[in-house]
Design a protein around this nucleic acid. Structure first.
Length: 424
RNA sequence: GGAGAGCUGUCCGAGUGGUCGAAGGAGCACGAUUGGAAAUCGUGUGUGCGGUCAACGCCGUACCGAGGGUUCGAAUCCCUCGCUCUCCGCCA
């Protein structure tokens, strides 16, 4: 959510910056009227309340002296009715205004490239060498099915499409990766390990920005106002919701493994084969709450922590700076890390690292105090995948495949695989 | 699932219709005292919103789990919901 005072002051400038996102901004123009109406109503009702408080005191005094206060009471009854009417109107206006504010995306940072489509994303750096095979390489879904380590068909029977069973060394590989990533971030990168709830309430989904705009993307629990988490970002960022932290506590660095549930509404027909786009997938997430002045440096560090995973796995990747059109609703700046996928003959997103500045913190009420008596300020929140585990498995299978249809185990994972060096 | 108890400021805790943002205590900050410290004493100590100000601030309003209601007036009465705890049932 944007700061209303800031928006009031710099409306034209903000609108121009938001326009770069390429979204429809007609709603935005309602802000001025709603905001003004709201403040008028507040002034009116508070004036009446001040009067009511004043006269009520007098009534109280009169009653103590056993004097008659009927006239005042009659008058205040009318004032009370008037207040009730105004407050109802005010509530409506505030609801409308809040919905509007919650539906305005974040302002892109000045370093975010301006663009109109994903083609305008900018490559920041590239790492590793793209493998060249002297045999015909196979996509991971074929290799994995032949190796009997993934079973898409039976998952479709047991649940439905876009679900999968991991089996044998496939299941082991997934678990090895989770442990490897968590150990790296907890032991080497200084994050505190968290295992969060996999369902959250509406306030949490609103806090991180999934709601109110994207409810159709989430799985809702029937009979409860709970949602299956689309990412550990939601429970972990909301961990400190509506709290005021001390400056010394910052930065807060959390790493969390969780399953993620996404309906992938609107992506029918895309990536229908393999592990790339599932309704349920595992991810190791990095989340940081930091002081505002640190957040852009931290974004670089956090992105580096995610890249480190790929470097240790020796998987070639590139880092893309997302342009204004491809930024997502909540981010001010976002890097996507894309891993080389031989079956696509291109790089595919495996991590997304974002700085939300105070956008989520304002929604979620996450603040800190610089000094004992200081004014609370909003923290900046960041997160990044470190990494999406299913996509890592598919990248390993494809990049480490051998002519005989077996898959080599990346060196760093061998201890996590019980010493196995090949999946066969 | 059933029965009961509770939810008040950073914390403990009083308050069952009227100068209650809220007694008292602890903590914390500042000051006094001291050679220094402890003890003691004094002062201060929340947040949101609106207005005003160059700014410190000031004024108003709201907040005693959340949301409604009754009333001239609600922390206090009523309703709904959430959470915590205890007992029973069930259960990995």
């Amino acid at each position: 959510m944007l700061d209303m005072k800031m928006l009031r002051k710099n409306f034209a400038e903000v609108k121009e910056k938001l326009a770069h996102r390429g979204e429809d901004l007609t709603d935005l123009d309602r802000f001025g009227d709603l905001d003004e109406k709201r403040r008028d109503l507040i002034a009116e009702t508070e004036q009446l309340k001040a009067k009511r408080n004043e006269v009520s005191k007098q009534i109280s005094l009169l009653k103590k002296e056993k004097k008659n206060a009927d006239d005042m009471i009659t008058e205040m009854r009318e004032v009370g009715d008037r207040i009730k009417t105004i407050d109802q109107e005010l509530r409506q206006v505030e609801e409308e205004l809040e919905l509007l504010m919650l539906s305005i995306p974040n302002i892109p940072h000045e370093s975010t490239p301006i663009g109109e489509t994903e083609d305008d994303n900018v490559e920041v750096r590239k790492w590793g060498e793209v493998p060249s095979f002297d045999f015909e390489e196979k996509p991971h879904w074929d290799l994995a099915t032949e190796l009997d380590i993934l079973d898409f068909e039976r998952a479709a029977k047991v649940t439905g499409s876009r679900f999968v069973f991991y089996k044998g060394l496939g299941a082991r590989l997934e678990r090895a990766l989770i442990n490897f990533m968590m150990d790296l971030h907890a032991d080497e990168h200084g994050y505190q390990e968290i295992l969060p709830p996999h369902m959250v309430n509406r306030a949490s989904m609103t806090g991180t920005g999934q709601l109110p705009k994207f409810e159709e993307d989430a799985f809702k629990v029937d009979g409860w106002d709970y949602f299956l988490i689309p990412t550990a970002e939601v429970p972990v960022t909301n961990y400190h919701r509506e709290e005021i932290l001390k400056a010394e506590e910052l930065p807060k660095k959390f790493t969390a493994y969780s399953s993620n549930f996404r309906s992938e509404a609107g992506s029918a027909g895309r990536d229908t084969r393999g592990l790339i786009r599932q309704h349920q997938f595992n991810k190791v997430e990095l989340v940081q709450l930091v002081k505002p002045e640190d957040s852009y440096q931290v974004l670089e560090e956090l992105t580096g922590h995610a890249e480190k995973v790929l470097q240790l796995l020796k998987l070639p990747y590139r880092v893309m700076s997302m342009c204004t059109a491809d930024l997502g609703f909540t981010a001010a700046k976002k890097y996507d890390i894309e891993v080389w996928m031989p079956s696509n003959d291109t790089y595919r997103e495996i991590s997304s690292c974002s700085n939300f500045e105070d956008f989520q913190a304002r929604r979620a009420g996450i603040r800190f105090r610089r000094e004992e008596k200081g004014k609370p300020e909003f923290v900046h929140t960041l997160n990044g995948s470190g990494l999406a585990v299913g996509r890592t498995v598919s990248a390993i299978i494809e990049n480490y495949q051998q002519e005989d249809g077996t898959v080599k185990v990346p060196e760093v994972l061998v201890p996590y695989m019980g010493g196995k060096t090949v999946i066969q």
